[in-house]
Write a protein that binds this DNA or RNA. Structure first.
Lengths: 383, 383
DNA sequence: AATGTTTCCGCAAACGATTCCGATAGGTTT
DNA sequence: AAACCTATCGGAATCGTTTGCGGAAACATT
């Protein structure tokens, strides 16, 4: 029998069942239950990070005093403050951000949801976001929706569970309902949309010159003498696709060209789409003499195919597209694009969001447009 | 005068200075100090997220019971457990990850440090990391070192302050001292290197076929009849650059070709470097007939320039390089590359790290190599 | 000297969840 | 029926920081 934990005697002690795997005992004399500690259990001493309490003990003051000293609060004596800072330095104190966040109710972290990090446009946006966030002392957690609505919802939940202070989002191509965003917007979480925005929600948005870009590109083709201009449009659900499509129709209308439904194809950002569309167009009795792709990747895929067929660019078919990469310049022929500035989009989005986070109560909503630039190259220069 | 907070009388009360902006009083009779509350202060009720305590109160049980129920612990009655789960669902309870992390001492977050997110290779790696991490229930925080040692150090500190459970890192091109890593490695933080690894530290590493890739590319050039092969090598400090350079020399040596120092140039991943090196080589009395660039971007830049000068590729000068992108296929002529698989690198790195995190104590170190693939295209096919 | 003011610091309660310990009430065994 | 067990739950400490409140000593004012 074991020794009682109170009287340290073994008499009057009897077994009393098991508790969490350990033998339990009862001392009748002391009326006390106890289990025996299993010694030798690997103590596994974690390398203890110095805390505010360590500093306090070290100096014989209260933790609150240390906290005040470290946070440069007013009510503290200069001398003690310096003492504390000195010890804090010596003990290599690093505040525990988790504890701080829990207490303050803010994590100094922002969440970003993008469809796909491998697309250069989004990588550029991320770089811009990172830059601004890091300068403002914010961490960035990135999630990819992989272009599916379901994953996007899970992303939102995960980020909110991590208690991010704000959210930047560019929707997946599937997303047409926005309840998962609205839910948290109503709770007061700052949210900013960029690129693939939505009009259904009342959030600040960073958009680009989607209408103007389309319009300029198409008008440029018309000026080069194109009469039948095909469009490889984006996924129909996306607002950004719709806007770009409107730029296309507006330019045609301005120049008195009727829209031919045969020349309109809605892509899904897949490579197969390019070839399907191209084949359909080339087999028309009246094939296009100019192709406008909303996404530059489609243009490249088509151009590769067209060169194989010995069709001349731009003489027989001219090409233009939206773009953000140096690759457009390296192609043969080089591609005329409406050039985008993803880094700037990221910067603006992040600073807008952080502004919103900091001045939460009295933040006046506003959206911003990041300008693009028409760069004319050989793929469209007939003259 | 104000009413005493104890006797609620106004007699015996006198002013006693100011405390944090509020008037302070003293009741002589009760020997008590007090200040008066400023009512009407904007209460600013935060939208309260339901906690474990809310559920407990709602059911008249202890928070500990709720915790046990939610975590599916053994010592809980099935009936009460179901009750609790039901209420938790009704009240839309979401656990506070901060509180959990603080208590458990783990954040379920891993940190990643890369030189630059805009480089497609790293974007690909990130995608792989994300995928694996997300499946394992881990969040990912990404930092960019922007290729400077100083920023890399700051990144490490920031991530450690955020108490990440582990760290994935590919070093900046400046980094040649590793104290900032060693420090935390010694504290027991799981760390895995990838791509730009270092031999100075005893960490698991994910590397690629840097030697074999170089060797194969250069040998391929030799087989195509090249006699004078120039190399655009990487930053000298990086181990990966050294390894790739060794592959180059080994191939030359095997085929009895002497190394000509004039044909060796160490790039800094800047565009200017390409042009400088190219000019130097072309102005040699004996210019190269083959160019091997460690980084495909250099190859592209050089090819653009060379085409302007009407030098024929591959007839006069052949090109090969390391690559990871579809762009190599779209160039004219298409570029022969040793193709890399960044996504796989990311996947392996992340799963290795998470493995390390989970089985911390008894984790046996091991490194891994992700294989590449020689893809021969027109830029080097002389025959 | 008596009173009014400040300064500076400690105490303790948050933040939200987990977990060790102990305590019952009821069931089982002798 | 006494002794023994078990299942189930509550209480309190803990993780590391912040902060409202109160007290004592030092300072300033009559």
């Amino acid at each position: 029998m074991s020794n009682c934990s109170k009287c340290h005697n073994t008499e009057h002690v009897s077994k009393a069942g098991f508790l969490r795997g350990k033998q339990r005992y009862y001392c009748k004399q002391c009326d006390v239950h106890f289990t025996v500690e299993i010694v030798g259990e690997k103590a596994s001493r974690k390398p203890h990070q110095t805390t505010i309490i360590d500093i306090a003990k070290h100096l014989g003051v209260a933790p609150s005093t240390v906290s005040r000293a470290l946070n440069n609060k007013a009510e503290i004596n200069l001398a003690t403050r310096q003492e504390i800072l000195k010890v804090a330095y010596e003990l290599d104190y690093k505040p525990n951000l988790l504890a701080q966040s829990l207490n303050r109710g803010e994590t100094h972290t922002i969440g970003v949801i993008i469809p796909n990090i491998e697309r250069p446009f989004f990588a550029g946006v991320l770089a811009g976001i990172q830059q601004v966030a890091s300068n403002a002392g914010y961490q960035v957690i990135i999630c990819q929706s992989n272009e599916t609505h379901q994953t996007e919802i899970l992303n939102v939940q995960a980020l909110m569970a991590s208690r991010v202070d704000g959210l930047l989002i560019s929707h997946s191509k599937e997303t047409s309902s926005f309840e998962h965003i609205k839910l948290h917007l109503n709770k007061g979480v700052p949210i900013v949309h960029f690129d693939r925005v939505c009009n259904e929600l009342d959030t600040p948005k960073i958009i680009q010159e989607d209408f103007k870009g389309s319009f300029d590109l198409v008008e440029h083709l018309i000026e080069q003498g194109c009469k039948r201009i095909a469009i490889m449009a984006g996924p129909e659900r996306l607002l950004i696709s719709q806007t770009r499509f409107e730029g296309y129709t507006a330019a045609l209308k301005k120049h008195g060209i009727e829209i031919d439904e045969d020349l309109v194809y809605h892509s899904n950002f897949k490579k197969e789409d390019s070839l399907v569309a191209l084949n359909r167009w080339l087999n028309l009795p009246n094939p296009p003499d100019g192709i406008f792709t909303v996404h530059y990747a489609n243009a490249i895929e088509m151009m590769v195919e067209i060169k194989k067929r010995n069709i001349k660019i731009p003489e027989e078919i001219a090409f233009v597209g939206f773009g953000d990469e140096l690759i457009a310049e390296l192609l043969e022929p080089s591609l005329t694009v409406f050039h985008l500035f993803p880094y700037q989009v990221g910067e603006t989005a992040a600073s807008l969001l952080i502004d919103n986070i900091i001045h939460k109560e009295n933040f006046t909503q506003y959206s911003k447009m990041v300008k693009g630039e028409l760069i004319i190259r050989n793929s469209s220069l007939k003259k």
